[in-house]
Amino acid sequence: MDELGRLDTPLHRLDARTKIITTVAFIVAVMSFPRYEVSALMPLFVFPFVLMASGNIPAGSILRKVAFAAPFALFVGLFNPWFDQHAALTIGSHTISGGWLSFASIMVRFALTVSAALILVACTGIHHLCAGLEQLGVPRLFAVQLLFLYRYLFVIGEEGLRMIRSVQMRSTGSGPLRLRTYGSLTGHLLLRSMDRAQRIYCSMASRGFDGQVRVLRRTALGWRDVIFAGGWIAFFIIVRNWNLADGLGRWLTGCGL
């Protein structure tokens, strides 16, 4: 993910603020559709597809992450066909219940919103993302917190992994730890993390840290940003108000014209 964020494409060169705002607009547009809508949501797939293509983001990595996150939506959504069994749609002799329709809608929304969020990160990178958030009014303390958290995720994660590995190598089987072992292992990791924070503070202080984390800004909004955000938001509004897919389908199947 991080490597992707450092690619250099026109999409990556856009200001982070532009991409954040457009993505949020996209998610709100998706969520604002009524619950039984499926076909009208389809044109919105243009957004993630175009972004993936123009940002050189491999679709596979995004899809894998989306699939990985699917179970919760699936779990709650699956109750819909159960509770909502009235017929909503008839095709020939087959009827589709409202529940299945809203279930399909949930899954489509899920795919759209989750992929949009992942693409935002992949085409911006955490560094610019946090800078953009701060410029959009998020408290600096929180933006810095996100940066530090992300920075030390790998360091602490690796430390935890090493500790678990050493426990597993000295115990039979590789199942979960016993509570006692767990307590001291996790506690140990906690103390080590706190020591590390102390050392980091020490190194910050020795370079004149005074409570403010300063970064040299090198971005500015350009006309490309305006076109990008404006164009996409206009597209979302059109899709939200006219069911393009249904229109296309009707035109093709020749009914209802």
Binding site: M42, P43, L244, R250, L252, T253, G256
Partner: peptide
């Protein structure tokens, strides 16, 4: 049924 079919066809094609 016409609307439903058109919805499905249209949706798939848009996708």
């Amino acid at each position: 049924a016409g609307t439903s079919v058109s919805g499905i066809v249209g949706g798939l094609i848009t996708l």
